[in-house]
């Protein structure tokens, strides 16, 4: 990694960034993580740049085109028909009753809204909510877990607080939150941003508890390890101890929580929106799309497949990134 002719400046620079550079170096060698990161970035670019590439409005109703099939359903036709179907899809309606359009490559829903546009638009919301809520839950969970595990005095009170939050019934809690804060947030941030803030905090504050319990359990064990004792004996402060010795050693459960948390947040969002506790009803999200299409599973499987695939791919890619990060952050593996 180091050149043969090193100047003093280079040494200084590499010393300050060497740890993160090492992490990146290790991360790069992890094939799964690199593929995961690539897919994740692809999804992010897709939903961010998608509206420019695919300009159809996700809420525009083209009622004549309702219940159109995805263009891939051409391949279910006879051999001879496939080419006709792909080159002139509108002619298929008269001949075989198959309703396909190039203007709606993934088909349309029961009102004639374009599925591709809805998956793209839905991704923006789902991914934003999923990632933000997951980070919030992770932050709160890790904070509470580390504090409770590390400081004996805080343990009792923090864990009883965790018990309380675990016991609270989710739905009434959310109803109360919405009753108290919705109007205030809507008036200061507008309905969509207001809903986003409420949703993220609602999911965040109702899903940090497992992370907290898991992290605390690990911290309790790590605290008694020899290296912590060694570090303490040379006078390491508590904050340094947590940052340098405890946190890196509880990374793996945190990474798993992150992966599971993002899936959980996307699904919870759909349940909340469905109940009217989230975004306006005409606002597509992946979870909503999946939920609304479950009734149409038999007749229009593509309506279920694409949002389902989007969620699964996101979760899978985050999982592999998490795996790679965990390996990269572990000095024992990195050293090898």
């Amino acid at each position: 990694m180091t050149d043969k002719t090193v100047t003093e400046q280079d040494i200084a620079a590499s010393a300050s960034r060497s740890q993160w550079w090492d992490v990146w170096g290790q991360f790069r060698t992890h094939r799964g993580a690199m593929i995961g990161a690539f897919v994740f970035l692809l999804i992010v670019f897709g939903i961010v740049l998608g509206p420019w590439l695919w300009s159809t409005d996700a809420t525009y109703i083209d009622i004549r085109a309702k219940n159109a099939r995805a263009i891939t359903s051409c391949f279910s036709q006879d051999w001879g028909m496939i080419w006709t179907c792909l080159s002139d899809p509108t002619s298929m309606k008269a001949e075989t009753g198959l309703k396909v359009y190039w203007s709606h490559p993934l088909g349309t829903d029961q009102l004639g809204r374009d599925n591709l546009a809805r998956v793209i638009k839905g991704g923006q919301v789902s991914l934003a909510v999923g990632v933000t809520a997951m980070l919030l839950a992770l932050f709160v969970g890790t904070l509470v877990g580390v504090m409770a595990g590390f400081f004996k005095k805080l343990d009792g009170i923090l864990m009883r607080l965790t018990d309380l939050f675990l016991a609270l019934p989710l739905l009434p809690l959310l109803l109360v939150m919405f009753m108290l804060f919705r109007d205030a947030l809507n008036s200061s941030f507008g309905p969509e941003m207001g809903a986003f803030i409420l949703m993220v905090s609602a999911i965040g504050i109702t899903s940090w508890m497992p992370t907290a319990r898991i992290v605390r359990g690990d911290v309790l064990a790590i605290k008694e390890r020899e290296f912590v004792l060694a570090a303490r004996s040379i006078g390491t402060t508590n904050s340094k101890m947590i940052m340098r010795h405890v946190l890196p050693n509880v990374m793996s459960p945190i990474m798993v929580s992150a992966t599971l948390g993002i899936a959980n947040a996307i699904i919870t969002e759909s349940a909340l929106s469905f109940l009217g506790l989230g975004f306006p009803p005409d606002f597509p999200t992946w979870g909503r799309l999946l939920y609304d299409s479950t009734d149409f599973l038999v007749s229009y499987p593509e309506r279920v497949i694409y949002p389902g695939l989007a969620i699964s791919l996101t979760v899978l890619s985050v999982n592999y990134i998490g795996d790679g990060l965990r390996d990269a952050l572990d000095p024992r593996i990195r050293g090898r």
Partner: peptide, 23 residues
Amino acid sequence: DFQALIKQWWAEIGVETELRNID
């Protein structure tokens, strides 16, 4: 579904609509 359809028709006559569904 009705809300979405009616919102679009009302948009065609120059009326803006925000939708809300409640449990």
